[in-house]
Design a protein around this nucleic acid. Structure first.
Length: 290
DNA sequence: AGCCAGGCCCTCC
DNA sequence: GGAGGGCCTGGC
């Protein structure tokens, strides 16, 4: 099935920019598990080619449009951000990179796992969690699994999760899974809530501080002003924007500074700065795109 | 061998 | 409120 696309969109940069951890690229197709389906997708000159199972492509198509962030008018975002010279350059380089609209539960678990870790390890951790506690999806190829529900992870318990190599994140995950499973926090409700209130509810969860919460708010809870400050964004701000004593701002104060500077679309500014800075490597050397 | 990761949490000042 | 150290595990 072909989905026509007539707006700015870059599938590869959208799926491989550290927002989600279950997409694999084989040089031609991107394959992932979303909405309980194995989804294979690739971009052509006219649109997106799609193959899904077990459900029909026609059923997944609107869901995927939403997931891929195609509902957002990127021209509005770009117009708002491009007066900034750094951003206009990044927008030109990575034009069409979008912020995903993910499932909040999967997003929350993923970023709890991300603390003091790296993408290869996070990816392995998430895959282990799905293989151990998710539901198998018949594919014919290597086995794939759905993302486990809050109840399934709560039942796994801290010991079950520790066995997967999650380290100290296992306790956080078990606690948070229980809080969600028991309905103490309703993630879907947070989509309608204002930013500040949703942030407070999220940071009350185990293993969720300001950075993780802002990732969840930005990538899954419809908060375009969210601005997660990790070490990459911290470096980008310090090297490209801040002067003198401003460089010593705490990460939390950097978030406030950025919200003030970039405005209601600060989240998109964050994603483009993050991507641009990360591709430069730890010491600022250019890194090849392999 | 030792240090540091795409943080969080707790203690202490 | 904010600076500092500990925390699992893995990679350099």
């Amino acid at each position: 099935m072909l989905i026509p696309i007539d707006v700015p969109f870059d599938l590869a940069n959208t799926l491989q920019s550290g927002q989600a951890f279950r997409w694999r690229f084989d040089g031609e197709w991107h394959q992932g598990v979303v909405f309980g389906n194995v989804v294979r997708i690739r971009q052509s000159a006219t649109g997106l080619e799609l193959a899904t199972q077990p459900d029909d492509e026609s059923y997944l198509e609107p869901l995927l449009r939403d997931y891929l962030g195609l509902g957002v008018d990127l021209d509005v975002v770009y117009t708002s951000l491009s007066p900034d010279r750094r951003l206009s350059q990044a927008i030109e380089r990575y034009s069409g990179m979008r912020i995903l609209h993910q499932d909040p539960w999967e997003c929350l678990v993923s970023f709890i796992c991300s603390s003091a870790s790296n993408i290869p390890r996070i990816t392995r951790n998430i895959e282990s969690i799905c293989a151990a506690f998710g539901r198998p999806l018949g594919t014919g190829g290597p086995p794939l699994y759905t993302f486990p529900t809050p109840g399934e992870l709560a039942d796994a318990g801290p010991e079950g999760l520790r066995r997967l190599g999650l380290g100290y994140r296992a306790e956080y995950l078990a606690d948070t899974a229980r809080a969600i499973a028991e309905g103490r926090v309703d993630l879907m409700t947070l989509r309608e809530a204002p930013y500040e209130g949703a942030l407070r509810e999220l940071t009350a969860l185990a293993g969720v501080g300001d950075k993780v919460a802002n990732c969840v708010l930005l990538f899954s809870l419809d908060k375009p002003e969210a601005f997660p400050v990790d070490v990459w964004v911290q470096r980008a701000l310090q090297e490209w924007y801040l002067e003198g004593s401003e460089r010593k701002l705490s990460k939390l104060n950097m978030r406030l500074w950025a919200r003030d500077r970039f405005g209601p679309h600060a989240g998109y500014a964050n994603q483009y700065l993050f991507h641009a800075r990360r591709l430069q490597g730890r010491n600022g050397e250019e890194r090849s795109h392999s």
